[in-house]
């Protein structure tokens, strides 16, 4: 037998969990698939550990330490991976999975980055840009590496 109290607790818990899942789901643009050494996600003034499986949001900044590297899979299947001492901002990311239209702007402030572009760049060649302090890269496809302000 369940007391009404326990039942309402369970209902509340389920509601909370689905709300959290929905909130996480709505904003997800990609996921950390590989994380080695020190890696953090800077988000809204907070510094979160970038563990394998962590979900990404537009505006996130990934930072790797001297022993760190990180690999991201975005929702359009593009792959981005940064080596040690890197700062990578996911400035803007929009992707409509039905039409394949979108916009992806990222900035490598320093360090090294390897990229395999995905559906956004394939659908429209002007829709993916990677910036460094000295350059703007327009991505027509597909696989390239870029470094910036190397130490």
């Amino acid at each position: 037998m369940q007391t009404p109290n326990r039942r309402s607790f369970r209902v509340a818990l389920v509601a909370l969990c689905s709300a959290l899942a929905l909130a996480a789901h709505a904003a997800d643009i990609g996921q950390v698939k590989v994380a080695k050494g020190t890696v953090t996600i800077e988000r809204g003034g907070q510094s979160l550990p970038a563990i394998t499986g962590a979900r990404l949001q537009s505006g996130d900044v990934l930072k790797t330490g001297a022993d760190g590297s990180v690999g991201l899979t975005m929702s359009d299947n593009s792959l981005l991976s940064a080596g040690p001492n890197s700062v990578l901002s996911l400035d803007r990311y929009d992707f409509d999975a039905t039409t394949s239209q979108g916009q992806f702007d990222a900035t490598l402030q320093k360090g090294s980055l390897a990229v395999i572009s995905g559906r956004i760049a394939k659908q429209s060649p002007d829709s993916m840009k990677v910036r460094t302090p000295s350059s703007i890269l327009g991505i027509r496809g597909t696989e390239f590496v870029v470094s910036a302000n190397d130490d």
Partner: peptide, 29 residues
Amino acid sequence: HSGLVVLLPEKDGHATAVEVKQGEQTYVL
């Protein structure tokens, strides 16, 4: 030097490109 961009070979060999704008100059890799 402050930055490097390299286009990598495609595994399935189809055409790709990256356009690099540095100041007034544009390079197509």
